[in-house]
Design a binder for these strands. Structure first.
Lengths: 135, 135
DNA sequence: TCGCCCTGCTTGCTATTGCAAGCACGCTTG
DNA sequence: CAAGCGTGCTTGCAATAGCAAGCAGGGCGA
């Protein structure tokens, strides 16, 4: 838990709860998570599972993803471009295909544009075992 | 991939692992998760935490989010975004890069899943399993 | 044949998660 | 004053996660 964005999930939950002006017991009732456990989580004594975080998010009416990001189990997606989001969301691609496309896309973006076009082509020529070749 | 099938994270992990042609021990080495525990997870005997899923995703070179979705701790993102449109609209890519990505994307879609295995294999072979594997 | 290496699985254990029962304190009301 | 209710926290326990040590089986080479 070292980066600027991923911090104490407990502090974050307490902050959100206090914003909502909800007591621990009210949140416990709303979430189905026990009041003492919520207290322990907020004070950093316990580390809740993703399922518990999901319940807490629902009780606080915030997104579970926000809690996952704070807990360090999910990366932030704000930096996604449309292409990355589209690739991830495309149900017609296998997970591995998605990863391949994302890797290529990112290497293209790192080359920053049109001047790198020949190199990009060269990179692709090392990649296409996909095209017709079989082992 | 099945869009609405949330469940049996173990079967999903085994499927991805077998696609990658990786043994449990190799995956254990790649992930830092113990070989017996991976076996138990695959057979549905244990329910792994998000941290373990994260490690497994990394070892299999797939996104953690995909595993979270399968495990039911993350909702699928909206799948309406068009990959091709996004690629074309991305101002950070040259026209040539766009064409290359589109070509690869289309070949992936034409392969529709099972034929993606050879390419998947190639990707995994870039991640060499360590020799002398032993738990 | 045996030895070695690979494979996936069994078992017993420790550490951790999440909870129920209850405590301590502050505030309000009769 | 006592009783009641709200608040957050303490404590001990059961269930589960995750692991190390090891088993069992298959394949291969000397």
């Amino acid at each position: 838990m070292a980066t600027s964005k991923v911090g104490s999930i407990g502090e974050y939950i307490r902050e959100q709860r206090q914003r909502a002006k909800v007591s621990l017991r009210q949140l416990a009732d709303a979430t189905g998570v026990s009041n003492p456990y919520l207290s322990q989580i907020e004070r950093g004594l316990r580390k809740p599972s993703a399922e518990i975080l999901q319940q807490i998010a629902k009780g606080l009416r915030i997104s579970a993803e926000a809690l996952y990001v704070q807990a360090g189990i999910l990366d932030e997606r704000e930096s996604d471009t449309d292409v990355q989001a589209a690739i991830r969301a495309d149900v017609g691609l296998s997970e591995r295909q998605k990863q391949v496309l994302l890797d290529i896309y990112e290497s293209f973006r790192n080359e920053t544009g049109s001047a790198a076009a020949p190199d990009a082509e060269a990179v692709i020529r090392t990649t296409p075992p996909t095209e017709g070749t079989s082992t």
